[in-house]
Structure formats: C-alpha cells, structure tokens
Design a binder for these strands. Structure first.
Lengths: 329, 329
DNA sequence: AATAAATTGTCAAACGTTTGACAATTTCAA
DNA sequence: TTGAAATTGTCAAACGTTTGACAATTTATT
C-alpha cells in the first residue's frame, strides 16, 4: 500500500508538505500543490482513512439501522439514504436489526467501536435507555427514542384521516382497519387515531384487526381470508401496502370484486407500488423528503453536537388514488 | 471514550495484560482474565477498531457493491449478505453503484482507503481493468471480472431452457423474450442462449425485445403495450420478474386474458414474488445458496489471499409454477 | 526448599496520519 | 538591496492499539 511518505518521495517534498496539501493547511504554492497532486495520481494514492480517523478526523461513516431492506419501503428509504449520504461524502454501514433486540444492541456497540460519525435509526426493537447512552449524533425515523434525538416522520395522523375519509367517501358501511402491533412511542400509532377520529365523527363503528409486522405473508394471508369470509367488510384500510396486496389477492381468490364489493386502501406509496400496483389507492409517505431532512439534521448534529433541534419533524403525506377505492357508477 | 488504559487502571493490571486478554495472547491466569472482563463490562469498553486495524488487525468490514437495493431481488440478496456476514463477525459497507461508472470507481477507491477486508461485487458498470488492480479479495456475482475473481451465479443457461420449455409445453406458438441489454461478460446472457436453444430445437422462431435495465417502469410499460398490440404474442418470457409484472398489468389493461390468450413467465423468483405474486410462473435463483457460497469463498480468500478457487461457480435454479402459464382445459 | 514453569509487568516500537512549533529558505515588492 | 511575507522543511507528539523482548514476580512440582 502506497503511503504518504511515498508520495513525498516521488513529489520531491517533505511528508509534512504532502499532508498540508491533502488537508489544505498552512500556506502552499500552486507549484508544489500540483507536484503533489501529480505524485498522488501517479501512485494512485489514497490516504489511509483509519490513520486519519485515529488522528481525529471524521470517519465519514454513518450507521443506518433498519429492520431489513427486502421490504420495498425500507429498501427505497435505504437506497435514498445511501444516495444522499454518498453525495455528501459519507458512506453507509448497513445494519439490519431484523426485529432482534440483541442484534440491534450488538450493532450499536459496533458502531461506537467503529467510531461512526452518526446514526440513522429506523429499527425499533430497543428501548430508550440503550440509545440514550450512545453519545453519538442520532436521528430517528418514526420512533421516539429520547428527548435529545429528533424524530422524523410523515403525518401519520393525517394519513389515517385521509384513509378513513377515502373509505367513507366511497360509501363504505363496514370498514376494517388492519394494523401492525401497536408499538410504544411510535408515531405510526397515529394512523389508527386519525382513522378512528374520522369514523367516529360519522358514527361508523371501529373494527380493528392486528397482524404482527413480522408475521409471514402466508400466515397473514390465512388470517385475511378468514377476516374476509367471516366479517364480510366492504372496505379495508391496511397500514402498509404489502398487507393491502395480500387483501387484493385474497379478494380475488374469494371472488370478491374490488372495488365493487370491497374497497381497499394501503399505506406507504413507494415507487414500487406506484409502478407495479397503480390500481391500489394508498397514502404516500414522502421518502425523498424524509431522507433529505434526516440527512440534513444528522449533518447539523455532526457539525455541532450541541445544536438545538426540534424533538419532532412531521412531513405531509399525499393520497394516491387508484381504482381500488373507485366509486361504482 | 473509555480506552484500554482505563480498563487496566480499573482492573488493577497493566495495559499490556488487558491487550493480552483481548487478543488471547501470551499466558494468562483465569483470575486476571475475569478481573479484566469485569472491568471491561463495568466501563462498557469497546476496543477502538480504528486503532486495532491500523496496527494490523482486520477491519471486519466488507464492501458490498450493488446497483441499488430497491429492486427486491437485490434487496433480498443484500439482506441475506448482511445477515450471513454479520453472523461471521463482519459488517457491511453498502455501496450503491446505481449504473454509474464514476460512482462505482469512487466506491472502489473508498473501499481501499477504508481498508475493507474484502468486496462482494454485484454491480457491473466497470470494466475488468479497474477491478483487476484493486488487490483485495473479491467475489463477483453474475459477471466475469478477472481470471482471479471467482464468479458465482445460478444456472442461467438452464434457467433459459426451463423458461422456453415451459412456454412450449403450454403450446405457445409465437413467444417473445424480453431481455435487458446484453452486457459483455455477463452470465445472464446465457438465459437467452438457453431459451434460444430450446426454441430452435422445435423450430420456433426467436422473437427478442430489449428493454434497458435502467429504463423507468412507465416507459417500459409503454413499450410492452406496444409489443402486445402490434406483435400479438401468445407467450412472453421476461428475464426478470418485475418486467413480467408489467406484462401482466399491461395484459389486464388491454383485456388480454392470462393464461388463456397469453402465457407469461418471469425470472428471479424472490420471496417477494412468491408471496405477493404466486400467480406468476418464474425461474427461481437460489439467493440463500448464492450468498452462502459467496460469503464462504470470500472468507476463504481473506484467510488465505493466495488460495486457489474456481473461476466460476454455478448453482441450480428451480422452476416455480404459477397460473400464468397454466394450460387451458 | 529448590527449581522449573507460569504469570505479569515494564518498556518501546510500530501502524499512517495530522498538526503544531520553529527554523530555513525562497519570493516579492518597494 | 533590504526587509517582510510566503513557502517549505525538520522534528516530534499524538491518536489507541498490538506485540515483541526482557525482567520480575508468583505458583506449582518435586
């Protein structure tokens, strides 16, 4: 591995000068700068980032903790995070917490040992305590972790309202909401609240089913079929799009016509769903904006660890209307 | 940040002894080991991995280069990679090459600067030359990079054959194959070859359409509608599942019944497709096995950089039969 | 109690870089 | 031509760890 002193030798200058060029420190003539750059190119030199970081420079590494990247919503989010962080000169250590407390804790330790500059936390197994004492800039997605850790989320309450309104506007009489398990301190609980508020304003009864987030699709499918046959709802709001896809599939299998006999509305509105399931009405979370904001906040915290940030940032959602809630002519 | 000397002080031993405990080096009594462990726990000590690596230890970081993680196939692959690497004590630096030569090159430089222990290369913008001189253990997915870099892929030729056979078995007369752009040195080209071989054995004409991998779904959709209306094929083999989904969608819009008027077969067979689109017949790549093999090979190379490995490893595919190619009764 | 073996300590160099203090040299303008 | 300013060099400490050589101490064995 070529090192700084090699560059110095080739450029015919001292090691200190090379370091000065790299870090743009002290006064330097254009001529020597060019000599050094030339030597760096010639030797294909890359400063050893371990040594730099050890010496006190930033590592330019960000830990990104999510519960898996195979879910399109998280996949798109992580992809966008990687993109934006890369363009700011940071790299991503991908941490899949996989609904596993121990793994998430391990990752937190590793990220500290690896001296990452900051963390984006999008998995939510761990309690507040463990995150509290990390002592690193953290931005959280969709979950309260500590007073000092900003939460970024989209407007879950409004999203729930919008979904309820859409169903009611489609003249639904017996709507059901399928949620994941309610997590403590999670703003996503607001989806239920918003939905509930809209229903009770119109005196429509709340009918709620819970399917744990980690449940296998096959199992979910069984439950949904059961729900459809026994409860015979004429409208379903799923708090994530994938579950909504299962509902559509189940309805098809059971010969329940959508939207004639059943209106379906999902949640998330990823690019994937928009492209491959345009028929599904859904509530879109603005992934790009969410990521932009999270990155911006994180970089602020990195630049100034004591900077004051809001506890919570809420971004607007958007309703994407497909045929799955279309009125019957 | 607590450091080694702090642990030494608390444990009442020398710094050298602490280091010996951590690295299990030299001779140590059980008693002092326990004292040191206790102190480490008490202080919540994590060795600074920058310092360790600088000193010569492994970084335990692996660069994983793919072209985006929002595609479910790559998403599932990266998720599995992260899982398996984590369980072996490695962490993943996620590199999204995004069909961008410059970005991929940048990443390669960064990975070298970051002293990663190895690389899994699954993006294929760059030529052989740039990978040739990286001088790090590399395993490639689905692309020839250099004689010394093993390729792992699934049996693309057999997959192409199987797809062709499935279409012919369903009594298709005018099948079309939709491929991505053929990449030089990519084993995925074999899908076409295998398909072609089966067709020509039965004297069925080859009709091939190309839709670039990076093209937006909307645009692809347009082309597919055009294809369906002008060419009126009665069978389509898409070399990836997402394109197949677009075909199904387009067929629905155009009132072309699947499988009655049109048989559709895809490629990849992710868990996602199996769960959410069981109707689609597809060729499944064994993602878990592919990842297991890649990780195994990479770790071998890391342990012994000179170890001899095969140039190419091919894993069997599996046909997943849905209703999209069902025979008409 | 004597000896060997096992354990622990001390010390220092090394990994590759940054950065400060200071001195030496070059450049430039008046 | 002198003096100030700009440039470069030398030297060394620091970041936190590992590891080797060696000495000092403790423990186990007979």
């Amino acid at each position: 591995m070529t090192k700084l002193t090699d560059v110095a030798r080739v450029a015919g200058v001292s090691a200190t000068t090379v370091s000065r060029v790299i870090n743009n420190y002290g006064s330097l003539s254009e001529k020597t700068k060019q000599k050094v750059y030339a030597a760096m190119r010639e030797l294909n030199y890359q400063p050893n980032s371990l040594a730099r970081s050890l010496q006190g420079k930033q590592t330019k590494l960000i830990g990104v903790i999510f519960s898996g990247v195979s879910n399109p919503f998280f996949g798109e989010m992580v992809e966008e995070l990687e993109n934006q962080l890369f363009s700011k000169g940071y790299r991503v250590i991908l941490c899949n917490a996989a609904d596993d407390k121990a793994k998430e804790r391990d990752y937190l330790r590793m990220l500290m040992a690896n001296q990452v500059d900051g963390i984006i936390a999008g998995a939510h197994n761990l309690g507040i305590e463990e995150y509290h004492q990390v002592g690193l800039p953290i931005i959280s997605f969709d979950r309260y972790l500590s007073d000092n850790i900003p939460i970024v989320s989209s407007d879950n309450y409004r999203g729930g309202q919008a979904a309820g309104e859409a169903l009611l506007a489609a003249r639904v009489q017996h709507p059901v909401i399928i949620t994941g398990q309610q997590q403590p301190n999670s703003p996503t609980n607001q989806r239920l609240s918003g939905y509930q508020a809209v229903l009770s304003a119109k005196d429509v009864a709340l009918d709620q089913w819970t399917l744990a987030f980690g449940m296998s699709p096959t199992l979910k499918m069984m439950r949904i079929r059961q729900l459809l046959t026994t409860h015979q709802p004429d409208g379903i709001f799923c708090t994530d799009d994938l579950t909504a896809l299962l509902v559509l599939q189940a309805a098809k299998q059971l010969n329940i016509a959508v939207p004639q006999a059943l209106k379906v509305i999902g949640y998330d509105g990823t690019r994937f769903i928009q492209a491959y399931h345009p028929e599904l009405t859904t509530i879109m979370q603005p992934i790009t904006d969410i990521v932009t904001l999270m990155v911006e906040l994180l970089l602020q915290r990195i630049a100034d660890p004591d900077c004051q940030l809001e506890t919570s940032y809420t971004l607007p959602i958007k309703v994407i209307t497909g045929t799955s809630t279309a009125a019957i002519s």
